[in-house]
Write a protein that binds this DNA or RNA. Structure first.
Lengths: 251, 251
DNA sequence: CGGGACCTTGATTATCTTCAATGCTAGTGG
DNA sequence: CCACTAGCATTGAAGATAATCAAGGTCCCG
């Protein structure tokens, strides 16, 4: 259990995922591309094992780019309950939990690699205020992050366990397909049901049963951290309607 | 039911609440004060009745300052379910729902007055990127808004109805006391239990019973839109622990 | 007085949690 | 190679929490 981060080779291509994410809004030209890369030129990738608290990293840099792996941001209550607020995927720029979010922490869910993004953050924010360069794209990324928070609230507040699950999977699907992390109809999901439960505000047991229900209905199938969505549209529909407790088709 | 907004006198002092909110971080000097006021000098206050959708207003201006009244931002599902994502109080600057938040809407909960804040928004964002003028204060306000979203997620995901209610009340209390909207130990709460239920992801019936429970335990008392908190610390505690179903002390 | 908005109550049902096992698989050390 | 363990998925049973359904009740207002 490597609690101690390792250093890795200086990474010039570590920004590939970020470049893709920014390009979703509008493809970056050569100048923009170079500017983004320059922000990470002197930085060194840091490797983290799974289940590692990233708070120490954030003490040194207030923003980090996810190069590889899945990272969770969430709160842990005194009595052991845990709520994951959002997920960070490769290409995401994570801000350190703010001072008024002292109860929040950020930790790795899988093996992961991150890199300091303070310089990029500053430059992107400036560009945003000016509406120049990566500004609009960066703005779109930040807006998408906020929208995900809002969706999380609606999920937890008003959707049933079944709907929540479908809704989350659809969101992850769109998010991954958009930046090329997964082909259409598939999701990379290297998460235990335990973690999924903490995202969706459910108990592990109920999470398990809900996933079984979705499999029985043929909405999903999965193995080894890879989820297949035979009919994304149907799943999308399931995320916005109350799911009647239908009979299992098998015998 | 005035669905049509009225115009009111040009408002120079409409920014009082905003000035207070900004000053929480660091008192504004004369220059800063003047700069803020200048952003609203030529604007006209707009009056809205309760229960009015503000989407049309946002079509004309992407940001509005709440001068008076309570405003909700939330999503309505096709089948009638409704989840309020956040509340806007006097002094808040509301951004129009983003393009990727098409399912979101903003509506008044009480009589309200708003004013266009596009110019202020632009200037504040510039100041923020530069770290000058109202930049830091504006940054703090925006961070606080994000923190409230996060808290909302934790509430809905992992707190019981009782805890949720306590947690929300504590948050509203701190928020109002900070900007002088309520004296310590009190909260202005001009909301129906129906609306509270839509904030906390509960049914109206259960909302009602939960509030009764809190009253029976002496944690709150209220009448006419004004909640009294005899012991804010106890309420705060109630927001972070599972509430055992104790007996009512009366009789 | 009637109507509407809101609060309250009781009874019933559904959803979800908790508790307690069991099984499976991969990794580990003998 | 095999017992041994740890982490994860799964299952059944029981219980808690919250939703739903269906009435009343109160207050205010036209």
């Amino acid at each position: 259990m490597p609690n101690q981060p390792f250093l890795s080779a200086p990474a010039t291509s570590a920004t590939v995922a970020l470049e893709r994410a920014l390009s979703v809004h509008k493809p970056l030209d050569e100048t923009g591309l170079a500017a983004v890369r320059a922000c990470f030129a002197t930085s060194v990738e840091m490797l983290h094992g799974p289940g590692v608290d990233l708070t120490p990293e954030f003490r040194r840099s207030a923003a980090r780019l996810v190069v590889r792996g899945w990272i969770a941001r969430g709160a842990a209550l005194e009595d052991g309950r845990r709520q994951i607020v959002g997920l960070h995927l490769p290409g995401d720029v994570m801000a350190a939990p703010a001072a008024n979010e002292a109860d929040l922490s950020v930790w790795t869910l899988t093996d992961a690699a991150t890199i300091c993004a303070e310089r990029f953050w500053r430059e992107a924010e400036t560009a945003r205020a000016a509406g120049q360069g990566v500004g609009p794209a960066w703005n779109a990324l930040r807006a998408a992050e906020r929208t995900r928070l809002v969706h999380q609230i609606v999920r937890l507040g008003r959707l049933s366990a079944f709907e929540r699950t479908a809704h989350l999977l659809v969101e992850l699907h769109e998010r991954q397909v958009r930046v090329g992390l997964a082909p259409p109809g598939e999701i990379a999901l290297p998460l235990t049901q335990d973690v999924l439960a903490d995202i969706l505000g459910l108990s592990v047991v109920h999470m398990n049963r809900t996933l079984q229900q979705m499999r029985r209905r043929g909405l999903i199938s999965y193995q080894g951290g890879r989820v297949v969505l035979p009919d994304p549209a149907a799943l999308h529909q399931a995320g916005r309607r109350v799911a009647p407790d239908g009979q299992a088709p098998s015998s």
